[in-house]
Each structure stands twice: as C-alpha cells, then as structure tokens.
Design a protein around this nucleic acid. Structure first.
Lengths: 218, 218
DNA sequence: GTCTATATCGCGATAGAC
DNA sequence: GTCTATCGCGATATAGAC
C-alpha cells in the first residue's frame, strides 16, 4: 500500500518470491486446502506475521501464483507467424509446456474449484482461457490458409477443436498424477499423444508430414 | 459396525440418504472445503452428533457420494452390443450423462484434488476410470469391426482416443461452470460438440450417417 | 437413532516490540 | 522487514443423556 518501490523494495521482493516458491511446493504436494498460512511460514522459515506483511491472505498468494504461471507461459510462447514451423515444433512445445505445468500442477488440479470461490481469480482465468483458445484458433486458421488442414471443416469446427484440445491439455497432467507416475518421461510423451489424437485427423498429408518432421530429425 | 441390518435399519438408511442429498447440494454450491460437517448437519436439520452417528467424517461422506455416482452411472449405461445403434443414440446419451454429471458436479470439479488426499477414494476412482475407458475402447473396436471407423488407425489410436474423450467428458462441465452458464441447454449441446469434434473425423461416411440419424429424426 | 454439551485443536489474522 | 504473542473463531469429534 504505502510502498514506494525504490531500491528499498529489493529485500521485500526476495522474501515475497521465496514465500511463493515454498507455497507452490506445498500446494503441489498437499493441495491448497491442506496447507495453511502457518505451514507456509514454517516451511519458509519465517514468522506468520512476516508472511502477512507480504500477503493479505492465502487467496492473495494463490492469485500471485496464477499471475506467475501465466507470465511464465506467455514469456515462453510468444505466438509466431508460420504455422508450418509451429507444427514441426509442436511436440517439443508440448513437452516444454508440460514442464511448466508440472511446476504449477496444483493449479491444473484445482483451478476450477479455486475460481469458484475467488471472483478475482476467476476473472484472470477466464481472460487467460480466452486469449489462449484465441491463439489456438488463430493457429488453426493459419493451418487452413496454408493447406495443412483438411478442407471441408464446417464452421465452428476449428473453435470446437481448440476448446477440446484446451480441455485435454488442462486435464491430462493431473490425470496422470492419479493414474500413473507423471514424472515418467514416457507418460509425458503420452500426454502429447492425447493432444495429437484429436488434432492429427484434421491435418492434410502435408500437414502430417510437417508434424512428423521433427520425429525424423530427433 | 455392530448393525445387524434388519428391519431396524430402515430409518437409518433414510437419514443417511438425506444427509448425502444435503451434502451433495452444499458441495455443489460451495465446494467441499467450504462445507463443514456442521453445515451439513444444519442443512439437514439434524444435530452434528447425529451426523457422526451415520458417517465417520467428511471423507466418509464424500466416498459414499462417489459410490452413489458410480452406481447411478452404471445402472443407466449397461453396455450394449450394437455399436451402430450406440452411434445413433450417442447424442442423447451424452445429454443424459450431462444431467447426471450436473447432479454431482462438485465431483467433476474436484476429483483430482480429492483423490490425492484420500487413498480409498483414489482406488475407486482408478477402478472406475479403467472400466469406463475399457468400455470406450470396446465401443471403438465394435465400430471398427462394423466398418464404421476409418481404416488405417495405428495401434493404440483407439485407446488414446478413448482417453482423450474421457478427458473432454471430465473437463467440459466444470469448465462451462466457469466460462458460461452450464444450465443453458445450448451450452450442454456444446459439450456434446466437443466430444464429437474428437470422434467424428475417425468415422467413415457410414458411421457419420449413423451418428446423424437421430438429428434427422429429432 | 437422536440430541445437547463440550473438549481439543489449529487456522486466520492482528498488535506491538524490535 | 521481521519477530513474538495472542485473540477469536469455527471445525472435527466424542461423551453421555434421552
């Protein structure tokens, strides 16, 4: 509130970041509801009072983590123009994405419940979702324009496909967390398979070749 | 524990069921972590002590609700033999399923978090998942045998598709809950669209016609 | 089977010293 | 910026009367 963030804010930022890292780890391991602000403070080796100096409450911490997550994603995946190139790197992109999602896996597990009880969180989630699916759709339209997409796609198909892929992407990691060991690299590969099983049949032969390119090279 | 369930158990079963109904409603509205055993007791118009007579604790209630949910599903959808007929009724089946899912929507929202903190729940969930996806795969193989599935499906495709569809089915309702009004019938229809956008491209022309049949008649 | 009363515990949050 | 101390509250769970 009263912080003019000059050089004085440095130490504060460090502690703040440290709290977020610890909280993220605990949330990932035990789920947000099992983790109290006291646990976080203890885990971070600071006092409860200090934690409340940096954050209003637990919700505030969760919001900050979502902001981190979103930023990390958007730093990494600035949308590019060439859909063909994107197809070629799709697999590695999915793998890289899964790394990030793993770091914030409590989120993938709990978002839908969390946004229900925190309107502020809900708003940023909706915004992210809209932007993200918008990117998918733009990607699909690029594919179409470049003849990489099978022709007779009824209107709305690309959008539906984008949402379906979003759902698969949202769901598969926490799902593996339950049914298998998500750290197993082969399982991560299965995650990309699940996305591709939805996407592939919409690609032309040329599109499929672009997709497999990297598999040949790698 | 010491209950020889004869005629004496009748009243007990009624109260038990009533508690479950109330709990389900509250969980749906506020999420499991915001709802305490006291809230449930108050909502049911009974004392906290009475609630603990019928259930060990909150986890126990949640487990009972999952059992209810699973049973309700399996009573409704006994697998049938004719895949072509199944295709024709797929849309209505999806719509009917969404009714059921709506009644237990807190589950769709929270399962993955819930199973993490309750091993018993985790076990039944895994079991249900395995059985359900197994049914999907069997369905896919029937389609294939009847020439309703496009021919060159690489091994594993049907299974991947089954899992992808499971993920879409798991995800879309709670997702709508966040992004739109899930009670809007058109939104429910969009849910089936999302499943079909993954399935349709794998169908032969004949398969697609079987799928559209009902749309013509309705 | 159901109630009332209560014990215990830990969470969220703040005040005030340093 | 960080700590210690602490208050108030509500959640879980049990004891014992009816």
């Amino acid at each position: 509130m009263n912080s003019r963030t000059g050089t004085a804010g440095r130490k504060s930022e460090l502690t703040r970041k440290w709290i977020l890292d610890v909280a993220r780890g605990l949330f990932n391991d035990h789920g947000t509801s099992a983790v109290s602000t006291n646990h976080i403070a203890a885990g971070a080796g600071i006092s409860p009072g200090n934690l409340y100096y940096h954050f209003e409450n637990k919700k505030d911490i969760i919001r900050a983590l979502l902001a981190e997550y979103t930023t990390a994603y958007e730093d990494r995946w600035a949308p590019t123009a060439d859909a063909g190139e994107n197809l070629a790197t799709l697999r590695e992109n999915l793998a890289a994405w899964s790394e990030l999602a793993w770091a914030y896996r409590f989120f993938e597990r709990e978002v839908l419940a969390l946004v229900r009880v925190d309107p502020a969180l809900r708003d940023s989630y909706r915004e992210t979702y809209a932007r993200r699916v918008g990117q998918y759709v733009a990607f699909g339209e690029q594919l179409e324009a470049q003849g990489l997409l099978r022709a007779p796609a009824p209107p709305g198909t690309i959008h539906d496909l984008a949402v379906a892929i979003w759902l698969i992407g949202q769901g598969w990691l926490p799902f593996l967390d339950v049914t298998a060991d998500p750290r197993d690299p082969r399982q991560v590969a299965r995650g990309t398979d699940l996305v591709l099983v939805a996407l592939t049949p919409y690609l032309t032969t040329k599109g499929r070749r672009a997709l497999e390119d990297v598999a040949q090279r790698g």
